[in-house]
């Protein structure tokens, strides 16, 4: 039993293709505490989706230690019941909003998880109402899922997980198929859950501005952890991000380019507002000199 909520040590995972062993994760070690909001960044094929699937018991690791919420997933003889118990605590939001909703009516879909757990009817009703309120979809309880926008569908999917009262929420590129409005809806929902309900969030993404809002950013490249730190620490290293095949956020790129020209800018801006403020201040200082 490990002390961290998620404990990963020297984790190795591979898949077989045409009889060839293709390694995806080559020795990853990390610990995530309860209540953290972690973004996992990486380009396509960096192994970030595999990591998400390992954390939820969809895939089994080939070597190394993997503990999630007290369950030892690195045990090769783990039984179905323990994986079932794990999934009560670990919710997973997938990329395609259409392929994870089961029922036609919003509240029926949210009820699907608790129904599977065998929760008494009256309590399911309470949980569904609470979950829909938390994601701001109460007005759509009786709506047809096919008539919702992508962001709304993802929020319903999140509500479906909340209704199972998980302590960890994994999002596997949950915003990749959404428009900017839908993306913001989903991110704000997740942030609220993390802040108000204390749900640990692991967000797999390749959007820099989403990662910038997390407490902690882990950069994966070629199955290894390239960097692990606060967004400020990570985004102050544009060379590292480029090496990982990731875009450098525009504000980071701008401040670093200005610094290279000898303009002294303090700090590391994470949002466009911060960036604009720093640049304006520097400009004013120059002018007054």
């Amino acid at each position: 039993m490990s002390e961290s909520f998620i404990h990963v040590k020297d984790l190795v995972a591979a898949y077989e293709e045409n009889g060839v062993n293709v390694p995806v994760l080559r020795g990853i070690s990390l610990d995530i505490e309860k209540g953290e909001y972690v973004a996992v960044l990486g380009h396509n094929g960096s192994g970030k989706s595999t990591l998400a699937k390992l954390l939820n018991g969809i895939l089994a690791p080939d070597a190394g230690e993997l503990f999630v919420a007290g369950h030892d997933l690195s045990n090769p003889e783990i039984d179905e019941d323990e994986i079932y118990a794990l999934r009560r605590e670990v919710g997973m939001v997938f990329q395609n909003p259409d392929n994870q909703l089961v029922a036609t009516i919003v509240e029926e879909d949210v009820a699907f998880g608790p129904e599977n757990l065998g929760v008494p009817s009256a309590e399911i009703r309470e949980r569904v109402d609470r979950a829909l309120a938390l994601v701001g979809m109460s007005d759509y309880a009786a709506a047809d899922t096919n008539c919702l926008s992508g962001g709304q569908k993802q929020r319903v999917a999140i509500a479906g997980l909340i209704a199972m009262s998980p302590s960890l929420m994994i999002c596997d590129e949950a915003t990749a198929m959404l428009d900017p409005i839908g993306r913001r809806e989903v991110i704000e929902t997740l942030e609220n859950l993390n802040r108000d309900q204390g749900v640990t969030v692991v967000m797999i993404t390749h959007y820099m501005n989403e990662a910038a809002r997390a407490d902690r950013v882990i950069v994966l490249d070629d199955g290894k952890i390239l960097a692990d730190g606060t967004p400020r620490e990570i985004f102050s290293q544009p060379e590292m991000l480029r090496a990982a095949g990731l875009d450098v956020p525009q504000c980071t790129a701008l401040t670093h380019a200005l610094r290279a020209r000898g303009i002294d800018l303090p700090g590391e801006p994470l949002s466009e507002e911060e960036c604009a403020e720093i640049v304006c201040r520097a400009w004013r200082e120059r002018w007054t000199k």
Partner: peptide, 22 residues
């Protein structure tokens, strides 16, 4: 994908399942 999502939501067939609305 749907099957994976359903499994992740603890679906194990009809056994021990309850219903929200009776």
């Amino acid at each position: 994908e749907l099957a994976t999502a359903m499994e992740c939501r603890c679906y194990r067939g009809g056994k021990g399942r309850t219903k929200m609305t009776i």
